[in-house]
Design a protein around this nucleic acid. Structure first.
Lengths: 242, 242
DNA sequence: AAGTGGTCTAGACCACATG
DNA sequence: ATGTGGTCTAGACCACTTC
């Protein structure tokens, strides 16, 4: 049986997911929707919602007329790019012990590009946070975050940024990050970045993410650029037909 | 009013989307779900389904208690990476005139990696298709597709691969591509690739996609590697909280 | 023929935002 | 207080797969 809050759908989803990871279903076949509904004492609609979310994540797939099945391949994948992950969690899911180092926190007028992207006045100030993430002590990700100073109404110190920036925004600014619009850009690591990420001396290709973070109201609140060492971190994604 | 097939939900979605692009809604505010349901003569559930899909695409966003709104920023984005696009369509959406050139079609035993990824016998044959896509005559994307020969039961010629590979699989092999699992890998273009893509003489960073394509039954049917010139093509993605 | 997922309905109640 | 989106129900019918 099941109670409210979090929603029945979420609870059903979590429960089914757990059973999947416990390999409780023979040959990857998940019980029929009606069966699950009876078993959990909820309506078929609720079960369908739960299954739809699992399908969207790639955890299961459905075949009309035939049944619902576990997507065995997806069980290996712990972080998908379409979801927002704190880098610490992402590194942990990859099996590393994460940590981070604050490189710099500054406050200065935004550049034209940044101001335009964040929809603030051209001369408005932004707080810029530069941060290095390490996996088992090895540098893997370097991030630059620009936050309009007008959103930060409280006092803060550089150390407040050891936590994820989205968490800082939530706790200190009552701003909830809802989504990112991300652009994937390849580059050859310039010298300063190669040094920071401990890259080998020869030219190395990197992925960078250029992202604008949006609040739940869809207002731009954050500009983020991240550089990944791809030898330690694989970026994965599920693509579907619409 | 509205009729069946495609589903009411799909029709409602398309209709609302069209109204959004026609800018028919004042200040980006979309009528309430009840209003839309009455207007289109369907249930609120159907409208909610349609709106959920639009929300998932990033076309709209919802605020509980407040309403549903157009996501103005998303109107600029024509191709999102989480969706499967034929490269021709992708290039067209970017404003280019697309074309493609078949570089090579071969048939030979799979390499160990490929066989493992495609879940076929180690010595099974694969048909490999190498193809170059051009935007306004400029090379932009180079793709290598491996298809297990056992899936191709009909005669074919190299020219059959001017169409998208997924279309070839659908028409000639009755195999429908349902999803890709993609890995994003940066690289410095080796000489042969630089030549093929007409890259400048100095070392250039590229994005490559290493993908396994799955059928609707979730069986691996295709291995694809694509190399993008990112100066002509921007890869965009919406990331969300789960 | 029987069972599965896919679509759709009508109606209920709740949580939240706004005036 | 009103109206909005969020959750949930019970039940109907359809399309498809499998036996």
């Amino acid at each position: 049986m099941i109670r409210r809050s979090p929603s029945l759908t979420e609870q059903a989803k979590a429960l089914i997911k757990q059973r999947i990871f416990n390999a409780e279903f023979d040959e990857g076949r998940i019980p029929s929707e009606t069966e699950l509904a009876n078993e959990l004492g909820v309506s078929r609609t609720t079960i369908r919602d739960a299954l739809s979310r699992l399908e969207l994540e790639g955890t299961i797939f459905r075949k009309q007329g035939a049944g619902t099945f576990v997507n065995e391949a997806s069980l290996q994948i712990h972080t998908r790019l379409e979801e927002i992950w704190h880098y610490e969690v992402m590194l942990q899911a990859h099996g590393y012990t994460p940590s981070n180092r604050i490189i710099e926190v500054t406050r200065q007028p935004a550049t034209g590009d940044t101001a335009a992207a964040l929809n603030i006045a051209p001369d408005a100030e932004v707080v810029t946070v530069k941060k290095l993430f390490l996996a088992d002590g090895q540098p893997v990700i370097f991030t630059v975050n620009d936050i309009p100073a007008q959103y930060i109404t409280c006092q803060f110190s550089a150390d407040d940024f050891h936590q994820p920036v989205s968490q800082f925004l939530s706790v200190n600014c009552q701003l909830e990050l809802g989504s990112y619009l991300s652009e994937i850009v390849p580059l050859i690591a310039p010298a300063w970045l190669a040094e920071l990420l401990h890259l080998p001396p020869h030219p190395t290709a990197l992925i960078s993410f250029e992202e604008i973070g949006y609040s739940l109201d869809n207002a731009p609140i954050l500009k983020a650029t991240s550089y990944f060492r791809d030898d330690l971190l694989r970026l994965r994604l599920i693509r579907r037909n619409t």
